[in-house]
């Protein structure tokens, strides 16, 4: 898909640690068309996080090295463009919702401080300027968009004064500050209770739909895949083993690994039998 908003082509990444070189991504390709909701699912060690980091340009080199492939955003290859150009896209046109609201927020600054700083530097990279009052207005606006009932109060708060769900929503607000076209979400809500996680996923889905964003959801949870995406890539050991429309994947998985993964998920309806004698009992 040449016209996808984000297109990863045959990406290979290796890590060199203690003199040993290991391939971590072995030719990964995936497409995120504009306004689409795509999931990238895999277990620990599958390479999903490395893929996400390569897209965002967050891989530390060394030990990581991109050994092949391209990553196109809006038709331009992120891997060959000058750093200055790439900086203009990162955190602005494409931004990330991080997983752990406790470690992604600085405990000694207020939400307004942290969001204001992000906005200031995003503006500077894009050659825009806003005064402090305009920045705060934008911060309050975005906090309102993530359904905070009292954005001014939240902005004045320190992270510790907010609940886990609210902190996660602050992280979503941060990602929305510069009106991105692509949101990359790394397991949002996994650190939260199930009822709060459900709210966060619903909020994310609503936001993406009402603002016409593209969403790339990185997760290990197949339930989250089904709830938030309409097309899914399954990764195992650095390779995309299967990619299909989400509904099809759950109805009739083709790849053996995908089949095993789906079979391992306990069902709310029961009938998942554990233990050797499980089938007999």
């Amino acid at each position: 898909m040449a016209n996808a908003l984000l297109s990863v082509r045959n990406l290979s990444v290796q890590f060199t640690t203690y003199g040993q070189t290991n391939p971590v991504l072995k030719g990964v390709s995936l497409d995120v068309p504009a306004r689409s909701q795509i999931a990238l699912v895999g277990e620990s060690g599958s390479g999903k996080t490395v893929t996400m980091r390569a897209i965002m340009g967050l891989l530390r080199s060394p030990p990581a090295k991109v050994t092949g492939g391209e990553i196109f955003y809006d038709g331009r290859d992120l891997l060959t463009m000058p750093d200055r150009e790439r900086l203009k896209l990162r955190g602005t046109a494409m931004s990330m919702v991080f997983q752990d609201p406790m470690s992604s927020l600085n405990p000694v600054f207020t939400i307004a401080d942290q969001m204001g700083t992000i906005l200031k530097y995003a503006d500077r990279r894009l050659g825009r300027s806003r005064n402090g009052r305009e920045r705060m207005a934008r911060v309050h606006e975005v906090l309102g968009q993530v359904r905070m009932r009292d954005p001014e109060r939240v902005a004045r708060s320190y992270p510790i004064m907010l609940s886990g769900g609210m902190r996660q929503r602050v992280l979503i607000a941060m990602a929305l500050l510069s009106e991105p076209r692509l949101l990359i979400a790394d397991e949002p809500g996994t650190a939260l209770d199930v009822t709060t996680q459900a709210q966060i996923l619903k909020l994310l889905k609503d936001l993406v739909e009402e603002r016409g964003l593209a969403l790339l959801m990185i997760t290990h949870n197949l339930g989250v895949v089904r709830e938030t995406s309409n097309y899914v890539y399954v990764m195992n050991k650095g390779v995309v083993v299967e990619h299909r429309p989400t509904a099809e994947l759950f109805e009739a998985p083709r790849d053996d690994y995908t089949k095993a993964l789906i079979a391992a998920v306990p069902r709310l309806t029961g009938g998942t039998s554990f233990g050797k004698a499980g089938a007999a009992a």
């Binding site: 009822t195 996680q197 459900a198 089904r226 759950f250 069902r267 709310l268």
Partner: peptide
């Protein structure tokens, strides 16, 4: 509320 919040992977689960 708890049951309604569980992310599920099949239509049967969704129905319940």
């Amino acid at each position: 509320l708890l049951l309604a919040s569980v992310p599920v992977i099949s239509a049967e689960e969704e129905a319940m």
